[in-house]
Computed example of a mutant assay.
Amino acid sequence: MKRALHIITGLGVGGAERQLRSLLRRLPLACDVVTLTNAGPVAAELRADGVAVTDLGMTGNRDPGVVPRLARLIRDGHYDLVHTHLYRACVYGRVAARLAGVRTVVATEHSLGAHHIEGRRLTLGARALYLSSERLGVATVAVSATVARRLRAWGVPARRIHVVPNGIEPASFAFDGAARRAVRAGLGLPDGAVVVGGVGRLVPGKGYDKLLRALAELPDDVWLVLAGEGPERARLRALAARLGVAGRVVLAGEWADVPGLLSALDVFVSPSTEETFGLAVLEALAAGLPVLHVTCPAVDELPRQEAPGARRVDPTVPDLTRALRAELALGVRRLPVPEAVRRYDIDRAVARLMTVYEEVRR
């Protein structure tokens, strides 16, 4: 096996997108990338890494004309394997790969929650389309045991499911004092501010509305920074205004320099109830931040002592507020990098993924 094509729904700044870039920097294969839409910042980073990126320019969720174009691209590239990422890319990519004559089709399921997929509510139609296209591949990679259980419950045969946890590059998230000062200045944060933050798409399942309500119960020197874009942006801004905390909230949008942002924070919070892995939580732990999370399979599936800096909280405003008060009472500090971070080193993820590739090729 020498050549692989990775197909992804978009290349904005998100967990799946950044994970793809990390993998491609280490996979011992010649890999190209196709994005169905949104050739955003991660596309530019991939190109800077020397990866060929093609943007098919889909204009909506339903664009069947993309299938023959994608099939032609796959056929012309003479790829040994096609690997799809995220819902739309999995549906269109599996069909196109089979039309192009490629039978070794692997998909990674990054975002299958209990009730949502990629921030959208699951419907019977979405589930049926997912399952029908899943049969066109040979394997589905689950990023956590939690996702693997959901796939089995949906009806995906256990023999086709392979658990390959996401990986991170721990050293790249080490605390950087200079980056802290630069990012804080760039975001307009005042000297002495205690900064709580989160990284993720602004969608209902992330629970950022509860984090805003908790902020309203905290002292005026506590600020909130949220890095990410999504349909909830306007609603969150309006809620901050109603709560009287708009002056202490920074909606930073898509933020390419996640390590720098984490250096600027003092506490990391993940109030999401439907995380499928929790990549942002791991990155925060690698940056030495204390972390509050509602759900994070990457941590919850490990013994408690492997991530002592991560504390699980209930998805309610009162509990989130109490947990933040308790954390802030301990003062601004950096914690040692826990064993959980080393467990999820990107090199381990690459090795496990290559094992899957070799197995399905056989």
Results as ranks from 00 to 15, higher is better:
R94G: 08
L251C: 06
S270R: 05
L151G: 06
A193P: 12
V332I: 14
C296L: 07
Y208W: 09
Y344I: 00
I74V: 14
R25S: 10
S111N: 15
T355I: 00
S144H: 09
F175S: 03
L328T: 02
P290H: 05
G198Y: 09
A148K: 10
R242W: 02
V350N: 07
V53F: 09
V258I: 15
T37I: 05
V199D: 01
V91W: 10
V356W: 12
T37F: 08
L86K: 02
E109N: 09
V34F: 10
C90I: 00
R21I: 02
R135L: 13
R334F: 13
G278K: 07
L212Y: 08
T321S: 14
E283K: 09
L226P: 12
T108G: 13
R127L: 12
E306L: 13
G244K: 12
A97N: 05
C90R: 15
D76S: 13
R343K: 14
V105F: 11
A234S: 14
D63N: 14
G253N: 11
A179W: 10
G228T: 02
V360P: 10
R213Y: 03
P204Q: 03
P303G: 14
A227F: 12
L239H: 06
D32Y: 11
R304P: 09
G186K: 12
R348D: 06
L129N: 10
V53I: 01
A142F: 11
D220A: 15
L302R: 14
R201H: 12
P68G: 11
G57Y: 06
R312W: 03
S270L: 11
R322L: 07
